[in-house]
Design a protein around this nucleic acid. Sequence first.
DNA 1: AACCTGCATGGAGTG
DNA 2: ACTCCATGCAGGTTC
Length: 597
Amino acid sequence: MVCSSPNSTIVPLFEKMLSASDAGRIGRLVLPKACAEAYFPPISQPEGLPLRIQDVKGKEWMFQFRFWPNNNSRMYVLEGVTPCIQSMQLQAGDTVTFSRMDPEGKLIMGFRKATNSASLQETFPSNMPNGSHSSETSYSGVYENIPILSGYRGLLQSQKGCSETHLNALSKKWNSVGGDMDWHNVETPESRKRDALSLPPVLVPEKKRTRNIGSKSKRLLIDSQDALELQLTWEEAQDLLRPPPEVKPSVVMIEDHIFEEYEEPPVFGKKSIFVVRSNGINEQWAQCDSCLKWRKLPVDVLIPSKWTCMENFWDQSRCSCAAPNELNPRELDNLLRMNKEFKKQRLAAASQRPALEREGLDALANAAVLGDDTSDSGRTPVVTTTKHPRHRPGCSCIVCIQPPSGKGKHKPSCTCNVCLTVKRRFKTLMMRKKKRQSEREAEIAQKNQLSWRTNDESEVDSTTRHLTPVDGSENEARVPNELSSRSQDQVAEAAKGQLDLNSRPDREDMQAGPDTLSMMTLLEEANLPLETYLKQNGLSSLISEQQTNSASNVQPQTTTESEGRQNEDCCTASAVHEQVGSPEENSEQDRDQNKSV
DNA sequence: AACCTGCATGGAGTG
DNA sequence: ACTCCATGCAGGTTC
């Protein structure tokens, strides 16, 4: 098991699905070029250099990181991986992940078995002190996959082959509306058990299929609308996940948040409908599998996938299929209609989310959907709070507490999670805007300087310099510090207050360069007056609050720190998002330099 | 013969 | 047209 000092953070770098040849006996793991160049030490000789990588059990492996010249390019490989692959019992189709422990810069290798419920058994380094965990159980690991597919066809595509995997990793690990327990899933006998219980690994007996598996997740494109539907289907599936009966979770307290950890995989429960009566009373309705009558249940009960009136322990008068239906046809119709309507609206809203909200305001949009839905209230407005697994009326997570359609009665001084998040995210937007401006200014200044500066290499800025390929000997000497120095640069960058607290690392468009549409949209949004923004998001009640606050500009660092504690969904991921930005850019610079040399 | 090493080839995706 | 990368394969080395 990987252990780190309390001040260490584990930064997911990239992941690679093992091809047949990667997992084969040759012992060569082909690395995505961009990832190798961005995250591993630069090498200028084909021989490369030895790389020490620790696996999740704490075992250290020494691989040869090298490249082959190939078509005027390079093909990066890790040699000698066979023992490690075997140790992890990996095969073609499984995924290995590479992370870095900062500030030591130690490389860490994890893996994920290829199954249909992949992230359930993700095995990652534990002990991520600065990482974020939400209050969800490990079931949310499944949910974590959803954003990856959520309407961003480009997400699984290559972004120069690198961030594809990176994003994937980040989004799985650190994106977090639903929380993140992947990091909990350290290799344990229990997780092994989970492996055994999960769906079988993708079979890869034939060459053709092997190619498909190996042929990069980036090629598994998915149409955005399909993805949305898939997401909803997934979400619906999450509603059905229940803790296994008779299994007591172990409760862990981390930074005042209670985490329930289950050793056993979830079981499927029965779909039920939640209703809030006009008098404010919550109800849960479920349908008997035998007589198909609907029965009212206490809101907090979880029923198994097969459920009949006989098991209606909460209402003795209706614990038999012979008992009359509690709902008249009209009520039932209304109930079902509302539920259907809700789903439809959720789909529509998801596909029309504005760019700004894509930035990370999904939760707010969901709130709007919920609100619209309730506004369409019949006698029995349906308020489904099951935004992710096991959410029920009364749940106080950030998703469930959102005000209906933003028409909430939140006061300017409200300090609820939603209000804080909205305020904070607005501040982030403003910070970004400022950052862009200062960058532009710096750029102009730099251009001016270049006009009189010579091309003396000693004047190349450190970021560029440390990524410039050097000769082998220098390479070797630099190895131990290379990664950590990079990470320190990144940390320093983050410390300058350039964290994007709104970042959704799972969204490729946010990871792409500043010239992407979404970034432009973001900037445009940032240029909007706050009032406009708040109104757009139905949070006009916050306007006055913001006006009060705008005078006192919050220190970025402070924001970041408090963010980490307050908000489980964006801080860490955002930090990483920013962090990876530079290596990637640097990598590009590096490559350009290579060509020019 | 089996394994290792380095390069070549070609499918697939991108711009 | 170009890049990436999975995999093939020839030649060398080791058992």
